[in-house]
């Protein structure tokens, strides 16, 4: 069976969807006989919103690649996906390259606007072109947020006009951050949470999303953004090691923590599992898996007349 058929079948297989059995007491015997131990339709009832997705699944067109991704998302109860940066990916994307990437996302949104929200990919090194692209895709187009990757350190002044325009458009900014080997392993223009906190300090009140929250060094990332209440912590993209979700909730409050997967390179499952398995309340899990992102996006959705 080829991958396309497998993915197609994913959409047709009605599965029981998981969850929140972490609230069950150890005295309950209840080993579930479903594919997972949660059983039931709990995840689907939650209706997860994913803050951080890339449509890297196979397919002959962007829309078909998205169909493949949605088929898998359906299996684990994901209702909405924020998508950005259609492949191929370039660390130092030129205007031609980020426009082509955004063209793919625009095509996807033409078919999948009921499931996907678009974040326009910019490289602030090319400030004029980035501002133009922001107008094309967000002010005049269907996208609702901004994605910044590794083309420009986010504490640089080039970002200021972008942040100001984003605020006018109510468009949240998702900035990739990572701290590799205490920062020594970062790419030349790869941002850290500390640099995002610097940017935030220049733009108080403007909502920013700390992509990956520093990645493998999430403990330092959480500390770095702790004093900036307008920065939300994106959980996407790391190994599902114990402790990140608990620390983020403890230090930032559950309302500043967002579930994201970094699919399709990461597994939806491994990233959702971090929230499901965390030693936090079920109410906080619901905030992280859905409500916080929904609330963050509401101003942008209202501006566009989209009913979430």
């Amino acid at each position: 069976m080829n991958r396309r058929l497998l993915l197609k079948r994913a959409a047709s297989v009605a599965t029981t969807l998981p969850f929140f059995s972490c609230a069950a007491s150890a005295a309950e015997p209840a080993p579930d006989t479903a594919a997972t131990a949660w059983g039931g339709g709990e995840l689907r009832r939650v209706g997860i919103w994913d803050a951080h997705c890339h449509v890297g699944t196979p397919g002959t067109s962007p829309a078909k690649r998205m169909a493949a991704l949605v088929a898998i998302a359906d299996r684990v109860g994901i209702e909405r996906l924020c998508i950005c940066m259609s492949p191929p990916w370039f660390h130092e994307a030129t205007p031609e390259q980020f426009r082509a990437s955004n063209d793919d996302v625009l095509e996807i949104l033409r078919h999948w606007s009921a499931r996907a929200f678009g974040f326009v990919y910019l490289n602030p090194t090319y400030l004029r072109e980035s501002l133009d692209e922001l107008e094309r895709c967000v002010a005049d187009g269907p996208m609702i947020g901004i994605k910044l990757w590794v083309g420009c350190r986010c504490n640089r002044s080039e970002l200021d006009p972008i942040v100001r325009r984003a605020a006018e458009l109510a468009a949240p900014i998702l900035q990739h951050t990572w701290i590799k080997q205490r920062g020594r392993g970062n790419l030349p223009n790869e941002s850290t949470p500390m640099e995002l906190a610097e940017l935030s300090a220049r733009h108080p009140g403007v909502p920013l999303i700390c992509g990956h929250t520093g990645g493998g060094d999430w403990a330092a990332g959480i500390r770095a953004i702790r004093a900036r209440p307008e920065i939300s912590a994106d959980l996407a993209g790391g190994d599902p090691v114990y402790g990140e979700v608990e620390m983020a909730v403890r230090e930032l409050g559950a309302r500043r923590v967002l579930y994201g997967s970094d699919a399709s390179g990461r597994s939806f499952a491994s990233q959702i599992g971090r929230v499901l398995g965390a030693d936090i309340s079920d109410a906080d899990k619901r905030l992280i898996l859905r409500e916080n992102l929904r609330n963050l996006l509401l101003p942008a959705l209202r501006r566009r007349g989209i009913a979430p």
């Binding site: 497998l6 993915l7 079948r9 994913a10 297989v13 599965t15 969807l17 998981p18 972490c22 594919a35 997972t36 131990a37 949660w38 898998i72 299996r75 684990v76 190994d239 599902p240 090691v241 114990y242 597994s267 939806f268 499952a269 491994s270 990233q271 959702i272 599992g273 971090r274 499901l276 398995g277 965390a278």
Partner: peptide, 17 residues
């Protein structure tokens, strides 16, 4: 487990057809 959350592996069984 318990280095990773157990649920991350478990849900992979459901994620794949």
């Amino acid at each position: 487990a318990p280095f990773f959350y157990f649920e991350s592996a478990l849900l992979k069984l459901q994620e794949s057809p």
